[in-house]
Design a protein around this nucleic acid. Structure first.
Length: 546
RNA sequence: GCGCCCGUAGCUCAGCCGGAUAGAGCGUCGGUCUACGAAACCGAAGGUCACAGGUUCGAAUCCUGUCGGGCGCACCA
């Protein structure tokens, strides 16, 4: 059962009417079916007449009149519309009958899934992130990448794609050596080297590794063990944060399996490499990069890019249709390179996309706090979770577009009050739960059953709430397609606001009138499910009580 | 200098593959608990959508240019 039949009926009628005016020809783009800015302008409106005016060579208002006639004919028998009006530059405005709303509500309650119907073109998608270096704890910036990537995965799954979460572990290269040196220095009771890692967590690692009896001189063993321990900590933080990584891929393992070498060989065979200044270069400029890139440094070592090319090739070989890398703002220059390399290897560069995440600043008392005694670096995600909890953390990392830098105000995020937008939405959910408890299990079950047809007319705020709930599938589709979880935050807030308005106007438990209580309980049920589903896409909990 | 992102209410930001009188939260001012949760609701004030051109029935939205801010431009990762 699909919950959007009511909307589909209207959209189909508008498109049908538009086609009729054009002797069966489709209109591109498809006519809109929007909610007008003012209630006086109807329940839904379409710009179809304005789109048709050009092709038909007539003025929009006249086309709108003809379109209205056609629509009246199509929808007349269903009892769905009260009236149809032409307004403004040529909008066709639909005023719907209560019967339409009652059917819509019934379909919402009966639907076993409130989300969108599965896409007709499902893809296998790999979402990679946050892939923070395993030489330190996850900090708040990494948390934003994780929250975003995870929420995008949930959105993509909700529209029917097959999606995996992957974390790429940079456990090779010079940084591992510096990491090992820093731990070894602490084990010896010395300060870490100038270019090493100075955080307090290094001291803790040193104690643990020393207790395990590792030889301070064995840098390789120390580095390996340090990264193991660090990764375990990172994973624990992610799990606590609600992010379950499906696959962990080690950079070192790519070397060990010879994948870096074979990627190099393949690039070589394709004739895309050349030697210059004792280094091996990849001619990425033939694929749109603004300069060529070094694959093997003049000292004979491969660059980070080389391993990353092998990694992306590996991902494509695993059969994914699409690779999504969630990257920090400081990596945005990287996208062109990877895309060029994929093309050089004969892959489809369009299969690769990389949403760039902007910074998150933690703000306390109007000032940005970045330093932390514990981690020696940025505020760690664990500290933030200790402070404001998972729900507020995820919300505040997601509620803005990923391309804008956000200030996360600790005082606001901490407050369990109306100042805090995440509680606003959760409160609506808890309030509904409370109403349902009041109504009792029998009443709730009755509300979920077939509609005996209430007599009373629907209040405007009831209709507004039903319309809002009907938007959910489109909102999920749009948010998934645009990789934009912040839209779900905005939508959740709108549902909560519409519910509070409904609550203000309409007594639920003990409402007067035949079938009115039942009908309003049904609306409460549908709203509660919608809020829970929306918050679920964000990884935020929907509490029964708070 | 080149590339990407951003410039919308006092503040933080939505809206951006064109639609009607540009929205929300916070902040400010005022009102609402003798029915189901006041963590809520209602009202008021607050805007040259950075600027200038262009495209068209229509531009915050698309194009060009200018100004301002952020980030990147490694044989680091």
């Amino acid at each position: 059962m699909n919950a959007t039949d009511s909307i589909t009926e209207l959209r189909g009628a508008v498109e049908g009417a538009a086609r009729a005016l054009r002797d069966g020809e489709r209109t591109e783009p498809a006519p809109s079916l929007d909610r007008p800015p003012k209630p006086e302008l109807g329940d839904y409106s379409s710009n179809a007449a304005m789109l048709l005016a050009g092709p038909l060579g007539d003025n929009p208002r006249a086309v709108a009149e003809r379109l209205s006639e056609e629509l009246r004919r199509e929808l007349g028998g269903s009892g769905s519309v009260d009236r149809i009006e032409v307004a403004g530059p040529g909008f066709v405005n639909l005023f719907l009958a209560d019967a339409w709303y009652r059917r819509a509500l019934a379909s919402l309650v009966a639907a076993d899934d409130l989300g969108p119907a599965p896409t007709a073109a499902p893809e296998r998608i790999l979402v990679e992130g946050p892939s923070a270096n395993p030489t330190g704890p996850l900090h708040v910036g990494g948390g934003r990448l994780a929250a975003y990537g995870d929420s995008v995965v949930r959105l993509l799954q909700a529209v029917g794609h097959e999606v995996e979460r992957e974390y790429y572990v940079n456990d090779a290269g010079a940084q591992v050596g510096r990491f090992a040196d820093s731990i070894a220095a602490r084990m010896a009771g010395e300060e870490p080297p100038e270019d090493g890692y100075g955080g307090e967590y290094i001291t803790e690692l040193a104690q643990e590794i020393a207790a395990e009896g590792l030889d301070p001189a064995d840098r390789e063993a120390i580095g390996r063990r340090g990264i193991e321990l660090m990764l375990a900590a990172v994973e624990a933080t992610l799990v606590r944060f609600g992010v379950e990584i499906d696959v962990w891929t080690s950079e070192q393992a790519l070397y060990d399996r010879g994948e870096v070498e074979s990627a190099l060989a393949k690039l070589d065979e394709g004739g895309h490499t050349y030697r210059s200044d004792d280094a091996l270069w990849l001619r990425t400029t033939t694929f749109g990069d603004d300069k060529d890139r070094v694959l093997i440094k003049s000292n004979g070592e491969p660059t980070y890019l080389t391993a990353d090319i092998a990694y992306h090739w590996d991902k494509l070989q695993r059969g994914f249709d699409r690779l999504v890398d969630v990257l920090g703002a400081d990596h945005h220059g990287y996208v062109g390179r990877i895309r060029a390399a994929i093309a050089a290897l004969g892959g489809d560069p369009e299969a690769f996309e990389a949403p760039i995440m902007n910074l998150v600043h933690v703000v306390e008392d109007g000032e940005r706090v970045q330093m932390s005694k514990r981690s020696g670096d940025f505020v760690s995600l664990d500290e933030l979770l200790d402070d404001i909890g998972v729900d507020a953390s995820r919300w505040f990392m997601l509620w803005r577009g990923h391309e804008t830098a956000v200030d996360l105000d600790l005082a606001v995020a901490r407050s369990q009050s109306s100042d805090n937008p995440v509680y606003y939405v959760q409160y609506a959910h808890a309030r509904i739960a409370s109403i349902l408890r009041k109504a009792g299990a029998a009443a709730e079950a009755a509300a979920a059953g077939p509609d005996p047809q209430a007599e009373a007319v629907l209040e405007p705020s009831e209709k507004a709430l039903i319309k809002r709930l009907l938007e959910f599938p489109d909102e999920v589709r749009e948010s998934a397609a645009r990789r934009a979880p912040h839209r779900i935050c905005a939508y959740s807030t709108a549902v909560a606001a519409d519910f509070h308005a409904f609550y203000r106007d309409c007594q639920v438990v003990g409402a007067e009138g035949e079938g009115v209580e039942r009908s309003r309980l049904a609306l409460c049920l549908a709203t509660k499910r919608t809020i829970a589903a929306a918050l679920g896409l964000l990884g935020v909990s929907a509490p029964e009580r708070m």
